[in-house]
Simulated scan of single mutants.
Amino acid sequence: MKVNGLQAEMQAMKLEASNASRPATGQQVSADFGAMLGDAIKGVNQLQSQSSELATRFDQGDRSVSLSDVMIARNKSSVAFEATVQVRNKMVEAYKELMNMPV
């Protein structure tokens, strides 16, 4: 997960939000958020798959894969997974807070 790519994606989202001429409905926001969350989870899955593949190649003796490559990939996937878990925890917390609000 490159920082420049993430920053570019965030800037594109900011530009898209500022160019919205009409307010989005709840269904549109929900669909956009769901798609964004799905893409993020797919990205985490891809990082974990790459990490696993590099570890397997290193274990099999592939000389093009160094131990540092394996460790960096493993740490990237670990950080991405932890971030995803934290986002999930915040979403559950927000949901519980909404459910406890008096109507």
Rank of each mutant, 00 (worst) to 15 (best):
V3R: 12
V3P: 05
Q7L: 14
A8K: 04
A12M: 04
M13V: 08
K14W: 11
K14H: 12
L15Q: 15
A17P: 02
A17K: 05
S18D: 15
N19C: 08
N19L: 09
S21H: 08
R22Q: 14
P23E: 15
G26A: 08
Q28Y: 02
S30F: 11
S30M: 12
A31P: 01
A31T: 15
F33Y: 11
F33M: 13
L37W: 12
L37E: 15
G38C: 00
A40F: 06
A40C: 09
I41V: 10
G43Y: 11
G43R: 07
V44S: 02
V44G: 00
V44F: 01
N45P: 01
Q46V: 05
Q46L: 14
S49G: 06
S51R: 02
S51E: 06
L54C: 01
A55C: 04
A55D: 01
R57F: 04
D59F: 03
Q60S: 15
G61N: 00
G61D: 08
R63V: 13
S64A: 12
L67H: 10
V70P: 02
M71L: 09
I72M: 11
A73E: 01
R74A: 02
K76A: 10
F81G: 14
F81I: 06
V85N: 08
V85T: 14
Q86C: 02
V87L: 13
R88L: 15
N89H: 07
K90V: 11
K90F: 12
K90S: 13
M91A: 09
M91G: 01
V92G: 04
V92E: 10
V92C: 09
K96A: 07
K96P: 03
L98Q: 10
M99R: 14
N100A: 11
M101G: 09
M101P: 04
M101Q: 08
M101S: 07
